[in-house]
Amino acid sequence: MAERRREVHPPPLRRRISARLIPIWRRTNPFLTDYKVCMAFESLGENCEFGLVQRHFGAEPLGLLRFSGVAVHHLIDALDHDFEGVGRPDQTEVHLNTHGTEYFSVDARYGFSSHSMVFAEDATPAEAAARIERRARFLRQKMLEDLRSAPKIYVYQSGDDPPRADMSSLLAALRRHGPNRLLWVKPNPDAALHGAVTLLEDGLMLGHLDRPGKVGEDWAPSHTVWMRLLRRALKLSDRERAARLGL
C-alpha cells in the first residue's frame, strides 16, 4: 500500500528541478538534428572554421565573432570591457581585400578582423562602412544579452596551441557576465581521441579534432569529427551542470 502511494505522488523535488534544467528538446528528442546541435553553440573565433561547420549543417546563427579572426588576449580584453566601442565609426576600420572585391573590417581597439560579405560592386566605401558598423552595434548588443543569459556553449577553436591558462582566463571573462560554458577545440595527434571531449574544469571542455580546418589556402573542416565532438560536449555539459547543482 505504501509502495502504491509513493507511485502516485509527484516526483521528488530534486528530480523535478533537474528535469527543468535540461531544455525540453534535448530531453524528449534523443535524435537531435545536426542543425539543432550546431545552434546550441556560438563561435568566439579565433577564425571562421566553426562558423563554416555550422553553415555546412544548415545553421546560420547571428554572432558577433562567427566569421572573425581574434586572438585570445584581445577577446578577453573585449569581454572585460563589454565590447565597448564595437561598431563605433572611430573604432571601425573598413577596407577592401587584396583582390579589391570584398570589404573587410577591423576593430581598432580589440583587433577583430571580419569578413563583411559586402562587395565592392554593391556598395561605396561609405555605404559599406555604415552597414558594417550598424551590424557590429547590433551584434554587440546581442552578444552582451547572450552572455548574461548563457543559452549557448561558446566555442573557441585554435589552430595553434594557446596555453591552458589562457582558456581558464577566457572562461573567467565569460563568467563575469553569466554562467557561461566554453568548449576549446584544437587538433590532437592521438587518433583515439578524435571527436572526444574532455572536461578540464567546471565549465571548460576540450574537444579533440583530427586536423586543422584549413588545408593550404582553403577551408575544409572535418565535419564528421566536429559533429561528434559537439554532441559529446552537449551531453557532458548537461551532466556537468546537473552535478554542479547537486542534482
Binding site: E60, P61, L62, R66, M117, R134, R135, R137, F138, L139
Partner: peptide, 9 residues
C-alpha cells in the same frame, strides 16, 4: 545570416 543581420539592425 548577414542579410538577416542587416534587415534586423
Amino acid at each position: 545570416s548577414l542579410k538577416q543581420i542587416d534587415i534586423i539592425s
